[in-house]
Design a protein around this nucleic acid. Structure first.
Lengths: 206, 206
DNA sequence: GCGTAACCTTACGCACGAGTAGGTAAGGTG
DNA sequence: CACCTTACCTACTCGTGCGTAAGGTTACGC
């Protein structure tokens, strides 16, 4: 109607629309018709450019994931101390989520429960968990702790921390007034103080 | 064909089947036909006893939630020290998840992403978060800390801990060889050692 | 200016699955 | 034994939404 636009532009518009609709409705309840309408284009164009509904969702997921990863990577200084790396990473992470509440709250949560995409998401999550586990292991080595630890221990711990971060990201997504910086501080506090105490050999016993 | 069974029995069979199918396929991909088939009964019976698909799912959710709550409540001794209450609660929680991997992994994760049920689940979650926040506040009061804290701080912290626990529950659901007791120990360690250090006034600074 | 390739549309086919109509048989109760 | 209530079935209707066929229109190279 208004203008004929080049493919790359339309594709981004479609992805924007798709993210918005998927996030509002959930994967199944979202209809290709609505996505097309929100994108201001007709349905066959969506199929022509981005493929089937599954492929479209995957494309959304990958775009958002890439952006998130890049945002975090951009915030981190690889030469800094482990705790500062963590701090910078968390700041970038929560800032991103705060700015993309839609994208976060639903794409990641959504993908998790849809069997076809769960694997994809799980793989990304695993990469993050491994990075965090690496940081922990680095800090552990520096602390010259006298206890022994297995790789699985770091992994499980990292797993828990990532879960906590995701949970706080949800909190953030729901509390419009919460400052992402503040959320990052909360997280940093209990992660690092807790981890630090643990690494120094303090253990809880029944 | 085989036997005519009383209503209550059939209802439980149907719920069992529904949980299994919902967990395997996800809410939308699960068909009422398959649920009926797994339950060894015809579809109209499901409608007659448990109502529409939404109502059926809700019934599953509520049954599982109730069981979980009861399992945890049964494990906790209300007169014990806060850390022991937490320990007992966590043990019961992970034991339950370990024994009901199906129910957990999918019902809760599933419900979260389906708009019609998200509210229900969110309410349950909030109740748990508040209990944990209460425990933290109790411990805080006992520690006679000299810093000030707001209710929101405890809530956010509890939120993060619950997220971490859920994350470890997923880990447990995926690692058939992991012992629930061990998972509970992991959790207890970093929650309590971390919280303890925090409550004693140790704070991380940039 | 004219072909052709890229952009874009309307209008459909078709499968799948929620929910129902209408009917059969079992087993208890008088 | 007549009855009625409860358990149970087969066989449909019908909406919804994915994916596509077939055709129109604008821009750009030559």
């Amino acid at each position: 109607m208004l203008k004929r636009l080049p493919r790359v532009v339309r594709e981004q518009q479609m992805l924007d629309a798709a993210v918005k609709v998927f996030s509002r409705r959930g994967f199944h309840a979202a209809s290709m018709d609505e996505i097309a309408e929100v994108a201001g284009i007709s349905k066959p164009m969506v199929y022509a450019y981005l493929g089937t509904k599954d492929e479209l969702f995957l494309a959304c997921l990958q775009r958002e994931a890439t952006r998130l990863m890049e945002a975090v990577a951009a915030g981190v200084v690889p030469t800094a101390r482990p705790d500062e790396q963590l701090w910078n990473g968390l700041r970038a992470f929560f800032a991103f989520v705060g700015a993309h509440r839609d994208g976060w709250q639903v794409l990641y949560r959504q993908a998790r429960s849809e069997p076809p995409f769960a694997a994809e998401l799980s793989a990304m999550r695993t990469r993050i968990v491994e990075v965090v586990a690496g940081l922990l292991e680095g800090a552990w080595a520096q602390a010259e702790a006298n206890r022994t630890a297995v790789a699985d221990d770091f992994l499980a711990m990292a797993f828990a921390y990532v879960g906590a971060a995701e949970s706080l990201a949800d909190w953030l997504a729901d509390h419009a007034d919460e400052d992402p910086e503040h959320t990052a501080t909360r997280m940093m506090n209990f992660v690092w103080v807790g981890a630090d105490a643990l690494l120094q050999g303090r253990v809880w016993r029944a």
